[in-house]
Simulated assay, not measured.
Amino acid sequence: MNVILGALLLLTLTATGQSPQAAGQSLQTGTLADYVFTCPPGWTPTQYSDGIVLNAPVSNTGEKCVLTLWPMRTPSANLAADAVQAFREVFKAFVPRNSEYATRNSIIRGVSAQGWEYFMIKNAIQPPNGNYQIVWGFVFVAGLGNRLAMISGISKDPLVSSCFGLNLTDVWPKFFYSLQFKGWSPTSSARQLMRRMAGVWTIATATAADRWVFAPNGRYASAAAAQRYVATSYNEILSVTDAYFGNGSYTLNGASILLTEDNDKSNPKKGLIRLEQESYDNGNTWTDKLYLLRTSTVDGKEYEVAYSRPR
C-alpha cells in the first residue's frame, strides 16, 4: 500500500457516510447464495433480502455480537478502497474512536488458501451522541474477479470480547476457514502457499516462547520453551525453563496442515493456517503473520496462535 492510499484510509474513516451508489458501486441483487460458510456453534442465522445476519447467544457479560454477510457487489480496481467504502457504509451511524483498552486499530490484507485476496479494517467505534459505550467494528472484503464479497461484525473490544476476543473466545478463525464462494475456482496451489510460509516464525510472552521454521520443500523444525516456578524451600523459589524440540515434515491441503514428527510418524498433528499482513499505522508499515490453529493435547480445545517473522 502506498502513502496516498494510507492517507485515503485515514481521511475516509473520519469523514461522513456516503451511499455506495454515490461512490460508483452498484449492488448486485440475489447473490447472497454465493456465500458458503459454517455458522459458529450456538449462533443463529437469519436470512433477509439484503443480508444474512448471524447473531451470537448473549454472553455472561451481556455481550451481543453480530456477523453480517452482505450481497455481492461490483468491485473497483482497488480492494483496500472497497474496504474503506464498505466500512463507511456499514458504520455510517458511528464515529471512529480509539479503544478504551488500548487495543490498536488495524488494517489487514491477505490471500486465502483458495487464492482470493481479502482486506480487513478493524476499528473502535461509538455512536456520536450520548454517553454510549465504545465498541468494536470490522469489515472484511474479498475480491472474486467481477464480484466483491463483504462481511461485517460488531462486538466488545477484543481484549474483553467473548466472540471476537484475544483472551476469550474468537469465532472468526473457524468461520474464515469455512468460508467459500460459489463459482470461484481455487487459484493457489499448496506449493505456492509453502513458498509463502518459508522462513522463521516466532512468538514470545513473559513466560513462554515458540518458534517454527518452515522450508518450501515440506520440512519443518520447531522449538518451544515455557517458564515455571518451583518452591524448593520456605523462602526459595526456583525458576525452571522447560524446552521442547521437534523436526518433521508437513503437507498442505487448502488451509489444512498436517505436521508429522520424524520420531512420531504414526501420530500426525492436524491444524489450520493462514498468512496475513497487519498494519497499525494506516498502511505505512506491515507485519507478516502466520496463524496456526491446533487442538491442545492438554485440554482438547482448539487454540489459534499468531506468529511473526523476526525483524
Rank of each mutant, 00 (worst) to 15 (best):
A221L: 07
R195A: 14
P45Y: 04
A225M: 10
F140G: 08
A83Q: 06
V66Y: 05
E117M: 03
A124E: 03
D242H: 07
Y280V: 10
R311P: 13
A7N: 06
S161M: 02
S106Y: 04
Y307P: 00
S266W: 06
I257R: 06
N167M: 13
N282F: 05
S189M: 01
G130A: 08
D157W: 04
P173H: 08
K265H: 06
T297A: 15
A93Q: 13
A190E: 04
T16K: 15
E302C: 08
P173A: 09
C39W: 00
L148S: 09
F181C: 03
R88S: 07
A83V: 01
S152W: 01
G145R: 05
K270S: 14
P75Q: 08
Q47A: 14
L5S: 14
T207H: 13
E63I: 11
A255N: 15
V213F: 09
W286Y: 03
T29R: 15
M120Q: 13
S161R: 02
D34A: 14
P173M: 04
Y48Q: 14
K156L: 14
E89P: 02
S99G: 12
V139G: 01
G165I: 07
Q133P: 03
T103K: 10
I237A: 01
A113T: 01
A81I: 00
N78V: 05
L5V: 05
I154L: 09
T44V: 10
N282K: 12
R311K: 14
S152F: 03
Y229E: 10
A190K: 00
G283E: 01
F175G: 09
R104G: 09
T251Y: 00
N146I: 00
V171I: 13
A243T: 06
E302H: 06
N253Q: 12
D170K: 04
S49W: 05
L9N: 01
A77L: 08
A80D: 04
Q25D: 11
K174V: 10
T61C: 08
Y307L: 07
L144D: 01
G218C: 03
A231L: 12
L159H: 07
I257S: 04
S308E: 12
N267C: 03
Q28C: 07
A22T: 13
W201L: 01
V111F: 03
S233P: 07
E302Q: 13
W212I: 00
P216K: 13
T38R: 15
P127N: 11
T260Y: 02
G17Y: 01
R274I: 03
S233E: 06
S152D: 04
G218V: 06
S19T: 15
R109K: 15
P45C: 11
A33H: 10
M1Q: 04
A243N: 12
A206C: 08
K64S: 12
